[in-house]
Design a binder for these strands. Structure first.
Lengths: 151, 151
DNA sequence: CCAGATTAGTTGATGCATCAACCTTGACGT
DNA sequence: ACGTCAAGGTTGATGCATCAACTAATCTGG
């Protein structure tokens, strides 16, 4: 129950700084290249990866692990900008179905290319393969730890 | 210039998920324990760690690596909630100096304890020492990579 | 079949992050 | 000195994230 050791504190500080800077540059490059935010991007990709024409909000929400109000607000903004459309859902008339517009589909592909390239450039080409593996394992371990206590 | 490999894509997905969930639980626990946001916390700790009574906004900004308008907005909100006070700066009459209120100082200590304990619990006690070291190295490497191209 | 509980989704409010525009004050070259 | 320019900070606008309250449709037990 002791405090953090010095190396631990330094490791944490370094991680925090990296996390902030990295998502900063990735978000900025994405916005510069496509005009999309990361939230836009996540939604577009999630919808586009589906084989079906349209996706239920519910399915999106589960895939993204977002709160329902977050998704609702986000979809409203994206609809206003002409990236998606929303229509009634057949199976459940409470639900709604999301469909990409032509522009939405186009941007989804474009953005995916830019984003993956940036991840490659900033992360994958910078770390050794062993480090990439280590990062994956660390992430998986921490995720487990979180999910153990938070149901 | 190829795409991400499958393991790379999985590693990235895992990292992203961990990043979101971890800062989620840490932020939530901090808020539950103290009523502070992470932004509040960062500012309080940064001010409190100074030996001096009051700190210039400029110094804070550099330490936190925040934009000036971000800090200004944050300080306004914190002032309204009675965590800090702001006064004119002697050396440079453009500047402003920040001082913690009694409540601010108290919360800073309280929050630090809770936060460090949570980092220990979720991260340091979960990873092996080697993994902590690896994470620190990975973070430092990525930070270097980012700073090479940006600035 | 119906009453109560769940669930899908929306809405409004608030805090946080960023951008651009602005104001004041200090710095500097001439 | 003085004119110009840069720097410290504030403000307003917008988008994103979360919470709580709400509506409407579905499910479930009796």
């Amino acid at each position: 129950m002791a405090d953090l050791t010095d190396p631990q504190a330094l490791a944490w500080a370094s991680y925090q700084r990296m996390r902030v800077r990295l998502s900063g540059v990735l978000g900025r490059e994405l916005a510069a290249a496509t005009g999309l935010s990361e939230a836009d991007f996540d939604v577009l990709v999630a919808v586009n990866e589906r084989p079906d024409e349209s996706v239920r909000s519910l399915a999106l929400r589960c895939g993204l692990e977002w709160e329902k109000s977050r998704l609702s607000h986000q979809l409203r903004r994206m609809e206003q900008r002409g990236l998606i459309t929303r229509e009634a859902c057949e199976e459940d008339s409470r639900g709604s179905a999301v469909r990409l517009t032509a522009r939405g589909r186009e941007l989804a592909c474009e953005a995916r290319k830019h984003y993956d390239a940036a991840v490659k450039r900033y992360v994958m080409d910078t770390l050794t393969p062993e480090q990439v593996t280590a990062l994956a394992e660390i992430s998986a371990t921490l995720l487990d730890r979180i999910e153990v206590t938070h149901k």
